[in-house]
Computed example of a mutant assay.
Amino acid sequence: MHAQPYVGRFAPTPSGHLHFGSLVAALASFLDARHQRGVWLVRVEDLDQPRVVSGATEHILRTLECYGLEWDGEIVYQSQRIERYESILASWLVEGKAYHCDCSRQQIAAYGGVYPGTCASRGLVAAGDRAIRVRVPAEPLGFVDRLQGPVSQSLQDEVGDIAVRRRDGVIAYQLAVVADDIAQGVTDVVRGADLLDSTPRQIWLYHLLGEALPAYLHVPLIMRPDGEKLSKRLGSAPLEPQRTAITLWRALAALRQAPPRSLHGAGVKELLAWAIANWRVEAIPATAHILEDSI
């Protein structure tokens, strides 16, 4: 049981329409929250405005409603919270926890993508094309995922100091997601396993902000037969509103929730009611991905 009331969330990026892989992640988050009589929030992660597709936010929200995934409270838009992120960055810069960096991606690629700390002691001042990086600890950071088990990472050796604002001025995902989860009182993060490697970075930012960590549950990604994950970038097919009950059944099957045969042909409302009552995290495969054609 939770010491505090459960607060979960689904945080889509409006870079395209909702596809089957996104639905599986949203459904897992929704069922975990509702099974524990918790709150389920929706947050739109629209910071990277050049990637935002016109009409995608409305389509995502309408699709969630079609599938009976009804959220609590007002929707939060990251693009309206930039002042909060900038305030955190200003504090970290003053405290020496962060610094400005003018290294290009090409320069960092020469070090295998691990930032070598080039600008850590250069004392660069703010400028239009400079990123902001947070200093990371030497010791490894770990956590126990509710499905995937223990995860540990040495940020210094595997990532380097974390970019929390990009060179183009866009606030980095790692900072925004942590700041928003704290602000919204999120106790449980349920999302795709592609974000498993990001979690130690986020744990470090929680530490810098002096806040308690949420519980984490990373569900397998749905992969295409060619080994690529279903994604908006690859133009994965948007969900069809007229096939909601069939698609919901497939999403439950992907999460290995196994509705009874008596529910074949049932509507969305009935399927969800069963799934909420019978939600079993331990039934989900503890793998990074599931092939779409195996569902």
Results as ranks from 00 to 15, higher is better:
V178F: 03
E211V: 11
Y206D: 08
C119E: 06
V53G: 03
V170Y: 11
D72Q: 03
R62G: 14
D129E: 10
S91E: 11
S104I: 01
I171P: 01
R130H: 09
E83S: 15
V268K: 07
W249Q: 00
E74M: 13
G169P: 11
P225M: 09
L255G: 06
V190A: 08
F30Y: 15
H59R: 05
G267M: 06
A266D: 07
L221C: 03
D102F: 10
P259F: 07
A288S: 07
S231T: 04
S152E: 14
I276N: 01
F30R: 06
I222L: 10
W249M: 04
S236I: 02
V177E: 14
G265D: 01
A273Q: 11
A245D: 09
L23C: 05
V114F: 03
T118S: 14
G117A: 10
S15P: 02
L272I: 00
R105S: 15
T199H: 09
I222K: 02
A110G: 12
A25G: 08
A266H: 02
R9D: 00
E240W: 09
L208I: 13
G112H: 01
E45L: 05
D168G: 10
R130G: 04
L252T: 00
T287M: 07
W274G: 07
R166E: 08
G235Q: 09
L93A: 08
L175C: 10
G68A: 13
G267E: 06
S121Q: 10
G142I: 03
A120G: 02
R62H: 15
H289Y: 14
L195G: 07
Q106S: 13
P14S: 07
I60Y: 04
Y111G: 11
S236E: 04
D72H: 12
G8I: 00
A26H: 06
G112W: 07
K269R: 14
W92C: 04
G142L: 03
G117Y: 01
A26S: 13
S87T: 10
L93I: 04
I108P: 09
A98P: 11
L61K: 09
E158M: 00
A120R: 13
E240A: 14
H264M: 05
A183C: 04
R280D: 01
A212W: 01
R261G: 15
W71K: 04
Y77P: 01
T287N: 07
A3V: 03
P150W: 09
W71M: 07
V125S: 15
G265E: 00
V24E: 04
E228T: 15
N278M: 05
V219I: 05
V144K: 09
A110E: 15
Y115T: 12
E139A: 14
H218Q: 11
R122Q: 12
Q80F: 08
Y115V: 08
H19N: 02
R165D: 13
Y67V: 04
S154C: 15
E70N: 15
C66W: 11
Q156I: 10
V134W: 03
I284F: 03
C103G: 13
Q78P: 14
I82P: 04
L64T: 05
A254L: 11
L272F: 09
I290W: 06
L272D: 11
P200A: 08
C119A: 04
H207R: 15
L155R: 01
V44Q: 02
E292A: 12
Y67C: 03
